[in-house]
């Protein structure tokens, strides 16, 4: 009798043990998108800067070797885009359609060249895709803008200082000519500003009265 109970207990625990393992396998979910390149390798790639393509370099490329991808919103894309560009908004890169498209391009050995509102936006998409393991991807250093309903694509030099900061600072701190001018300007503004303040006071008194 005792032995029977013992074997029963053993078989019950064995069944439970198996069940737990089966449930574990069934509920195990593999993440859909995985970062294949670490932050460190991505940083190394960023510093190399050879993923940046200028408009001139683009013209010298064979158009069958690359595909342009516009990462701006659908609205901006519909307003106007570079010829033959495909629209994949940044927010929709991690969708089945987009990754299928990019996979296709990679299989065809085409370079995907990204551009956005500015190189920052394109670089966001680039960092994401590079970390996901796509390496044949570049960005176009341009800034599209609209004028009279026409799309203009300006070249941008990334991280170019607008001036020699140290020199400008030196001049600004030493030269008295600039200082005088600013002082004059300041007298004008302070008057203007004061006037406006008075107007505001009046406005505020009205709600006080209402209380």
């Amino acid at each position: 009798m005792k032995e029977l109970e013992k074997t029963k207990r053993i078989s019950i625990s064995a069944v439970l043990f198996l069940l737990i393992i089966i449930i574990g396998f069934l509920t195990y979910k593999k993440p859909k998108y995985i970062f294949k390149n670490s932050a460190e390798t991505t940083l190394k790639e960023i510093v190399k800067k050879d993923y940046i393509v200028s408009a001139n370099q683009l013209n010298s490329l064979n158009s069958s070797d690359y595909v342009l991808v516009d990462v701006r919103s659908v609205y901006d894309y519909d307003k106007g885009h570079i010829k033959d560009a495909v629209n994949i908004p940044l927010a929709q890169i991690l969708t089945d359609d987009s990754s299928a498209f990019i996979d296709n391009m990679m299989n065809e050995n085409k370079t995907v060249i990204l551009y956005g509102e500015d190189p920052d936006e394109a670089s966001s998409a680039w960092i994401l895709l590079y970390q996901l393991g796509y390496e044949n991807i570049k960005i176009l250093s341009v800034k599209p803008r609209f004028e009279d309903n026409k799309l203009y694509v300006d070249n941008v030099t990334i991280e170019k200082p607008a001036m020699n900061f140290a020199e400008v600072m030196k001049k600004a701190t030493s030269s008295s000519g600039i200082a005088k001018k600013t002082k004059l300007a300041k007298a004008d503004k302070s008057k203007a500003a004061k006037k406006v303040i008075i107007v505001k006071k009046k406005k505020k008194r009205v709600p006080e009265g209402g209380c």
Binding site: I21, Y33, I34, L128
Partner: peptide, 27 residues
């Protein structure tokens, strides 16, 4: 079962945050 452990695929996990979260943060 213990032997089966040897044949399990290497655990793939994202270092830091996962790509979906990353996109949201970038946006």
């Amino acid at each position: 079962m213990a032997a089966g452990l040897f044949f399990l695929p290497e655990k793939i996990d994202n270092e830091g945050i996962n790509p979906e979260e990353f996109v949201l943060n970038i946006l």
